[in-house]
Design a protein around this nucleic acid. Structure first.
Length: 288
DNA sequence: AAGACGAAAGTGGTTGA
DNA sequence: TCAACAACTTTCGTCTT
């Protein structure tokens, strides 16, 4: 049912379903990070690996000898020159490029843990790249900037993760992610719509194992809230959570306040307050 | 025993002078 | 820049199922 963003949301749900798998791969990926990183530099895997194994002297030395110490035939010398040139070039673009690769691997790891679909991941990477190009990253933590990029991309696609969620898997404070997010939006002229309760509904419903019918009823409740002006100033997650809570009761598949609070990242008290407001302003019975 | 309720005090972010 | 303010959280005692 939902709306035009339905495609993304269900995609998002897919992400949740395969999340476990993605997490595992993420970790394994990380374990082989060094190797992966080298492969990613696109210089041809065997060569870079060899260089990395040799340690820090990255230059190919000036003696025209091959790996066995034999001298290299005359006619291959021009080739050697080209190889040296590329090798040097690689080093020059080194730090910046290496940071980027590091950032992108972080981004991949974080996205996996959050179950973020590929298209949004791509966007996050793009945002980070643009930020890097604009010299916004310099002097700030790469990891934090990556976190902010992920958060921003999710916001753009209207499938937001909360600051808390992003913070949890990156161990960057919500404050910092928020600050960098604002910075990104400003510096890169990104336009984001404010989050709505509907943005969170689908994800919360699936986390709670609630049916599509319950979710649909919750959507109705949210709709009523909007009409009555109960949305503004409230935390969107709180509204979505309470709508699901109420719907779950009415549909006979009850969830406790605690459960709902747990997955939505708001407290039971807040859910109670929303609930009370609903009762005061909405004729809930007419919806069921 | 578990869930729901609500009071009271504290926190962080927004707003308006 | 600072104080007031609303929303939200934490904590805790009490009531309900």
């Amino acid at each position: 049912m939902i709306d035009s963003s339905r495609g993304e949301i269900s995609c998002n749900n897919c992400g949740l379903v395969i999340e476990e798998d993605l997490i595992d791969r993420g970790q394994e990926w990380r374990a082989f990070n060094q190797e992966q990183r080298n492969k990613r530099t696109r210089t041809g895997a065997p060569m870079t690996n060899a260089l990395a194994d040799k340690g820090l002297s990255t230059d190919i030395d000036w003696k025209n000898r091959d790996g066995h110490g034999n001298s290299i035939p005359e006619r291959n010398l021009p080739q050697m020159y080209r190889i040296r040139k590329w090798n040097r070039k690689l080093r020059v673009s080194g730090t910046g490029e290496r940071n980027l690769v590091l950032a992108l691997s972080e981004l991949d790891r974080g996205s996996s843990k959050l179950g973020i679909p590929r298209n949004i991941r791509e966007d996050a990477a793009l945002i980070y790249r643009r930020a890097a190009k604009r010299n916004i990253v310099r002097g700030r933590s790469i990891e934090a900037m990556v976190a902010a990029s992920i958060y921003t991309a999710c916001r753009i696609w209207c499938v937001p993760r909360t600051l808390d969620e992003v913070s949890e898997i990156t161990s960057i404070t919500t404050k910092k992610i928020g600050a960098y997010y604002r910075l990104l939006v400003k510096e890169l002229n990104i336009k984001v719509k404010p989050t709505t309760p509907m943005d969170f509904l689908s994800r919360l419903a699936s986390k709670l194992g609630l049916s599509g019918e319950v979710e649909a009823k919750a959507a109705l409740i949210i709709q009523k809230c909007r009409e009555k002006g109960l949305i503004t100033g409230r935390e969107p997650t709180g509204i979505a959570a309470t709508a699901l809570y109420v719907a779950s009761i009415f549909m006979g598949d009850r969830r406790t306040q605690r459960d709902v609070a747990e997955v939505s990242g708001v407290t039971e008290v807040t859910i109670r307050n929303r609930y009370k407001e609903f009762l005061d302003n909405i004729d809930l019975n007419s919806l069921f």
